[in-house]
Nucleic acid binder design. Structure first.
Lengths: 356, 356
DNA sequence: AGTAAACGTGAATCGTTGA
DNA sequence: CTCAACGATTCACGTTTAC
């Protein structure tokens, strides 16, 4: 965790020392006057000085500088993620190409609950864009193909991702109840980026650390992290937040091996969304069988019948010595007070979110 | 339908003669060698000469030229749509901003049936990006808000659209059964763009006409169209296709009525026409506030905030202590049996009379 | 206590017309 | 040109308050 200007700090790092950069730079929103909701309440936009640029040329210079410094810090086979909106993402994408980066995908974060367009003058701005890029056309970047497939119902992960905004308990508030940072990103989003393109032990760097979402998820996933933030206040919040994060107890669970068999449901989404954590112990209702959750959505368990590894259905079946098993109703988690709940409850929660 | 170079042709058009440009330019895909499916069949990509550019600078020049020519042809209050992928959309978006266009939305076409990523090295590229831009920040572009809302189950239309690829009957094949054009777009996509940002009778121009999807949909929707295409073969296909399109028999059905466009009805007209009488008591829905109608069309009311006199809007705002209020929907009258109806109902009655 | 209604809010480039 | 008046406009959730 370093407080300071990200360009200076990154240029001071040893060249080629970082496996992945995740950047959430200022979007240069160029907001006009106040925007009122139909009920006349005022929308709190991003009004901080750090999002103010004199003109497009100034923003382009800023973008080129931090991208070049990221390039210096990145390993040759490392990769970079940037998130943005239509205000800035075209400037960022062009600069990436100009600097020699090789674009791998643009990824769409579709929001389940975006802010509406209150004046009815445009389409509801319901998504943000991420760019995933390697350092060069020839680079041998890492892609956890099987893990991504497993996280998506055993279908190839697509370039459009659905997540809710960061609200509720996850959203960090200050003592007065105001949001600590205007643009905090959901951990589920970072989870997918980090799982997709790094391995445990890799170094993840975030030049616009804010309240430290990248660091929190990196720690949870057993990756090392470097956070750079200019504002002391944000850095302080980030430090406290990350200190409270539990690392996965068993590092083995964080690996996403190359081959696996199919689960019938996207169990992995529960993990991405933080409804279950890697390392969590699941058990059947009578507590005769137990298994551990792995980061890529597979279970691991052992009993007198042997060692078991696979989908929630496969492990449930194997441990009972049965030909098949519905893992969603078989496996339970501890909901506090020693109360057991089927993991299907969590699936319903996610399903409810997706109903938009 | 014009055969030739789109820059030359557009620069030859009268300045400001076009309401909307829809452009599907070459994507500059930079494909490497052949791509084989797992069964070793070869994927037919875009291999035509028109998608080959020497380098990024050449592509940028090309982009700037056709965008500038489009700008020349566009009316000041016209708008432009471009579709692209991550290979070219960042160049296009930056060029648009550099040329003074004002971005309104980026819109994601999510494909229901994208081509899988056969190599398993990236996310399935399951979307394309459209940019919707006005000619300037101050331009008064057209947006069919109500039409878009009604096309989306009475919820605001979002920036992510779901459509299948153009396949089956809609996909034009040549005599040998090969696809006539490698990147034919679905008509549903054009339908939404044209409906959203033009009115019947408007002129829609497509500088990369291909097999004429834009013209076919424009004709179907009662819009005029101009198509520019360099390749004779494509132009021929487009002409035959559009000739077979039926225009809507009833032009009335093509209009998307907007509340904004209705003529203004002063509140006083209701009194003049005897729909309300001087002295009538109006109240809000919860009957918390009441006011009296004056013969001159002003309202009078009193509450703990003081005595109020003015327009329906002013008094509604003042009595609620709000900065503004739509009096038409706020105030209600007694329609008999103690039933309350908004005075907007009476305005609709007058509007209907005016339409005869 | 339990259910229902009300309230708050999120990276937002969010008017038009006539005097 | 500016200024004032008109009047059009919201979805999904989590949290709080009311009944």
């Amino acid at each position: 965790m370093l407080v300071g200007d990200c360009v200076t700090v990154m240029n001071g790092l040893p060249a080629g020392s970082v496996d992945m950069v995740f950047a959430d730079p200022p979007y240069n929103l160029q907001l006009g006057g106040d925007l009122l909701r139909p009920n006349h309440s005022r929308v709190e936009g991003v009004e901080e000085d750090w999002d103010k640029f004199a003109d497009l040329a100034t923003y382009d210079r800023f973008t080129r500088d931090w991208l070049a410094a990221s390039r210096h810090a990145l390993k040759d086979d490392g990769c970079l993620w940037v998130i943005g909106s239509y205000h800035n993402i075209f400037r960022v994408g062009s600069a990436l190409q100009d600097l020699g980066f090789w674009l791998l995908n643009d990824v769409i974060w579709r929001k389940t609950n975006p802010m509406p367009n209150f004046r009815g003058r445009r389409f509801t701005n319901a998504h943000e864009t991420l760019i995933w890029a390697a350092k060069s056309k020839e680079a041998r970047y890492h892609f956890a193909y099987e893990a991504m497939k497993s996280l998506n119902d055993d279908l190839q992960m697509r370039s459009d991702w659905l997540f809710p905004l960061c609200t509720g308990q996850e959203r960090i508030k200050d003592a007065d109840g105001n949001k600590a940072h205007p643009t905090q990103k959901p951990e589920a989003l970072l989870y997918r980026c980090i799982m997709a393109s790094t391995e445990p032990g890799d170094v993840v760097l975030d030049p616009f650390f804010g309240t430290g979402t990248t660091g929190a998820v990196a720690k949870r996933l057993g990756r090392s992290w470097i956070g750079i933030e200019r504002e002391h206040q944000y850095a302080q919040v980030a430090n406290a937040r990350i200190a409270a994060v539990q690392e996965a107890p068993n590092k083995e669970l964080l690996y996403a091996p190359a081959k696996r068999q199919a689960p019938r449901v996207p169990f992995g989404w529960l993990i991405e969304r933080g409804l279950l954590n890697p390392g969590t112990v699941l058990s059947d209702q009578r507590r005769k069988h137990t298994a551990h959750v792995r980061a890529d959505g597979m279970l691991i368990g052992s009993n007198h019948l042997g060692d078991h590894c696979g989908s929630i259905h496969q492990v449930g079946a194997a441990m009972q010595g049965l030909p098949a098993c519905n893992g969603w109703t078989f496996w339970h988690f501890d909901a506090g007070n020693g109360e057991q709940r089927p993991i299907d409850m969590l699936r319903q929660k996610v399903l409810a979110e997706l109903h938009c």
